[in-house]
Design a binder for these strands. Structure first.
Lengths: 345, 345
DNA sequence: CTGAAAGCGCTAACAT
DNA sequence: ATGTTAGCGCTTTCAG
């Protein structure tokens, strides 16, 4: 049991009666160290379980080998998948991940950025809180020369690499599928107006209606992106003079609320009303019926985001133009929609 | 825009024509610095946005101000709640959190521990993977003089502080509630045998049966802790000559599978069969009917775990005996069980 | 009241 | 082939 803190190069050097720099070189198999001392050193290092002190290394190299991660809410399946993707790639590349949740609070997001900068992380991955409308904190990171990659919730105003999901395409596919199963009056429960993902998903929805020659009806577009509200909104929708025969929601949780309400109203899914969510979260697999939804590929988004950052970290000359990578979506067909031609899962 | 890396004490000192050590003292309002230089220094520091370099501080103080966190799977609601609890307390105490997922793999858990140790974290919070049966990696952390707190998945063999939920009590309460609503044949879907939480929850179940004068029936205890299996097991249970009138599952996801199967069999919840889960995960609030479940208080567990660690970090003299803190559970009454006396939510 | 020096652990020039 | 020196940014004696 050695409690004396950890063994240092100096300790090894003293024990062997040689200079610390020799030990250092021997440890990394530097060519101009003799075979014999190299062996001696490595053996002793193993014996004493020598680990290089990363803090000393960081100080010298001015590289912390730490990536900062700012995430809205880790409890959401999509975001935790993103974290997994980030982690896996980061560790393979020898980076550690320091994590901060904003909990959808702008102030916490700002604080997280400041802490991360002052922790000297080498780069930051960030997805903004729903509240965020001002970007000074992000520009401040950039001013410090620290590269940033934004993922999922991104803003055109900020000059960084970005990764998003193809929200437009996802929505488009979802609604086309509904149309192909014979639905004529397709409603959309959308996210908060002004948010990129809201707008893109709504556009995809509208485009799909047009391409399928279905007329759009303002009454069928409702801003509602959470479970609680959806209980009310669904009832209102279904009580319209001409109620919808399908509903496309901006996320799975909202779809769950819709489903619950439809059941309570005695309506069957998908026979009376078809339903499509967005995210392919765990929940979508356990509802009754299971939920057709758009797969956002969170894990892959995480991988892409960190890879973009690592690339930036390699190319110190920041001449490379910023990249906006868009992840393709899949429509996962389940039991909340009727069959068109093929059916799966 | 200064890209020259960050400003250092030396930079400030040079600009002011004084010594670095003076700047250092002025910055921390050391008593023997004159009012005037103190002001000058602080002003310049603000102007240049000076932040102390935490890496240099770490090297000097031999304290990284980083806590390591090893977690099985962040995608599970319970664990992500734990993370939130840890985060919030850690940051208030000025610590950063470095996170590693084991993804339920023993090897990854071991690697995580090693990386964390070599990253010189000041303490480690760990919940073991389902595979873990050997604890050398944890003892190695301890040998390095780094305090460990185990949470949720803990082992008696290891001498550390621990936090667990009162699994016995949670199960006991759940089953007593079922009994109080008139259920006579209560089945239990249990976790993998040999795991602490499995055994405790099963004991709670058995004890509750006994205290309510219900006879136990081996056929009603099935090892099944996931969605997929539950689809089969439920059918088998309900096809018994004397089928259960209530089912208590080891987690919410499993309960969801049970519910789905019951619906498909034309059985109503709770009129024909009552159902109680364990975790109070998001899912339990969106099933139809909503699921009565045991609240595990993940957030609080996280807070408790990190607090135990911080306490240990304060008391360097490790004379304090190890603490095993047990978090009380609540039964959350929802619509998958009948009403006894009072009903809520 | 202020400054010079030393050292945390490590490595890269630069000797020898 | 090995050793010496210096310095990454900071603080803490210890001298002035």
């Amino acid at each position: 049991m050695k409690y004396k803190g950890q063994v240092t190069i100096k300790d090894l050097a003293k024990e062997l009666g040689i200079a610390p720099s020799t030990v250092s070189k021997a440890l990394k198999n530097h060519p101009d160290i003799s075979e014999s001392t190299r062996l001696k050193v490595n053996e002793l290092a193993r014996k004493y379980k020598y680990y290089p002190n990363p803090i000393a290394l960081s100080l010298r190299s001015a590289k912390s080998k730490i990536i900062g991660l700012v995430i809205p809410q880790i409890v959401h399946h999509f975001f935790s998948s993103v974290v997994s993707g980030i982690e896996d790639v980061a560790y393979d590349a020898g980076y550690n991940v320091m994590i901060y949740q904003s909990n959808e609070s702008f102030n916490r997001e700002v604080m997280a950025c400041e802490n991360l900068v002052s922790s000297r992380v080498e780069g930051i991955l960030i997805s903004s809180s729903k509240e965020t409308r001002n970007f000074d904190h992000i520009n401040r990171i950039l001013d410090n020369g620290i590269p940033v990659v934004m993922y999922d919730r991104v803003f055109d105003e900020i000059k960084t690499d970005k990764v998003t999901v193809d929200d437009f395409e996802g929505a488009y596919k979802a609604v086309c599928h509904l149309a192909s199963t014979g639905c004529k009056r397709i409603a959309h429960l959308a996210g908060p107006p002004g948010l990129r993902i809201t707008d893109l998903r709504k556009s995809g929805y509208l485009e799909a209606l047009k391409d399928n020659k279905l007329k759009t009806d303002r009454d069928l577009i409702v801003y509602c992106d959470n479970f609680k509200q959806s209980l009310i909104r669904t009832k209102q929708l279904m009580n319209l003079p001409e109620p919808p025969d399908a509903i496309f929601t901006v996320n799975d949780l909202t779809a769950t609320g819709v489903m619950k309400t439809l059941h309570e109203m005695g309506l069957r899914v998908p026979m009376d009303v078809s339903l499509v969510g967005f995210s392919n979260s765990l929940i979508s697999q356990v509802t009754n019926p299971t939920l057709t939804t758009v797969n956002q590929h969170g894990y892959q988004m995480g991988q892409t985001a960190i890879q973009l950052l690592l690339d930036r970290l390699m190319n110190t000359q920041s001449s490379v133009p910023f990249i906006h990578q868009v992840i393709k979506t899949d429509l996962i067909l389940r039991d909340s929609t009727k069959s068109s031609l093929a059916r799966r899962n």
